[in-house]
């Protein structure tokens, strides 16, 4: 029973990693950028949520919608201001800029909200009993919401016009333009979508962990990045799988080995996977005829 509940806990945090990893992977797929500011959007989403609830006294659902909107807009803004001017620059310039944006967001947040942690309420209190084991409602909600979002995203990328355009741009943006696809809009949309997913992740995260601070996004973001690389960066099913694997290993390590070793195990898994399968679990090493 302990084992099962640890697996469920792992699925919960893993779902959150997966939602963040999806954005990492989508952005990497389309502009070949490791957007290290992506994790900090979690923090922004959390603070917007907190501000809406505690300072403006808005209803939770409204705060959540505002948080998602603000994060999506911020994602697009960051792309336009920081990354778009560097699109034809060496990748290393983009990478350094992304790290810079990450620090900018963290420090702006410290300036505005102070470094002191803030508390958020759990929107989904209570417990349910499944098969004799007790589970927090928030755990079930987190897993369920993530599954629905992942299925929705997969269907969207596979079947919609915008989803296909995203795949076309990610493969060859020059040729995609020749098809009449507005590449700038497609990239903006991808950033908005990825950041919106992060906002959802931040809501789910806040419900479980209640405490937020300006640097909270950094470790979460890095773990989501590990999840994306583990699954195969650029692959959406890979990001989901990577997130879940990281979550479960972390949870089991905390339960059976030591809480302090959890992060070490996560990064250890990354190193092992990169040694054995550098393109990640579901990463493609495509064979093409020319």
């Amino acid at each position: 029973m302990i084992f099962l509940s640890q697996i469920i806990n792992g699925l919960q945090i893993g779902s959150i990693y997966a939602l963040v990893a999806l954005g990492y992977s989508m952005v990497y797929g389309i502009v070949k950028l490791l957007n290290f500011a992506h994790g900090d959007i979690i923090m922004v989403g959390s603070y917007v949520l907190w501000f809406g609830l505690s300072r403006l006294g808005l209803a939770p659902w409204l705060s959540v919608i505002i948080s998602i909107t603000v994060c999506s807009a911020l994602g697009m803004l960051i792309e336009k201001v920081a990354y778009k001017p560097l699109r034809n620059s060496p990748k290393i310039s983009l990478l350094i800029t992304a790290i810079g944006v990450s620090y900018l967001l963290q420090n702006l947040s410290q300036l505005i909200f102070t470094p002191n942690p803030r508390m958020l309420p759990n929107f989904f209190p209570g417990y349910v009993s499944i098969g004799g084991a007790q589970f927090a409602v928030v755990t079930i909600v987190t897993i369920a919401v993530s599954v629905v979002i992942m299925i929705g995203l997969s269907v969207m990328v596979k079947n919609t016009k915008m989803g296909k355009a995203m795949r076309a741009v990610s493969e060859n943006s020059d040729v995609a333009q020749l098809m009449g696809i507005n590449v700038n809009n497609t990239i903006s949309f991808t950033f908005a979508l990825g950041s919106g997913l992060v906002a959802v992740a931040s809501v789910l995260y806040c419900c479980s962990y209640s405490q937020i601070e300006p640097t909270m996004g950094s470790m979460l973001g890095i773990k989501a990045f590990v999840a994306a690389v583990l699954g195969g960066i650029g692959s959406l099913p890979g990001a989901m799988l990577g997130g879940i694997i990281i979550g479960i290993f972390e949870s089991l390590t905390k339960a059976y080995i030591s809480s302090q070793l959890a992060d070490a195990v996560v990064f250890g898994i990354l190193i092992i996977v990169l040694l054995i399968r550098p393109s990640g679990i579901l990463g493609k090493s495509i064979r093409e005829k020319v």
Binding site: K164, M179, K284
Partner: peptide, 18 residues
């Protein structure tokens, strides 16, 4: 320069994007 990871049909759909 076909989209090598898209299917034949999806490539044609992209051609008709406009």
């Amino acid at each position: 320069m076909v989209f090598s990871q898209l299917t034949v049909q999806e490539n044609l759909e992209m051609g008709g994007y406009v």
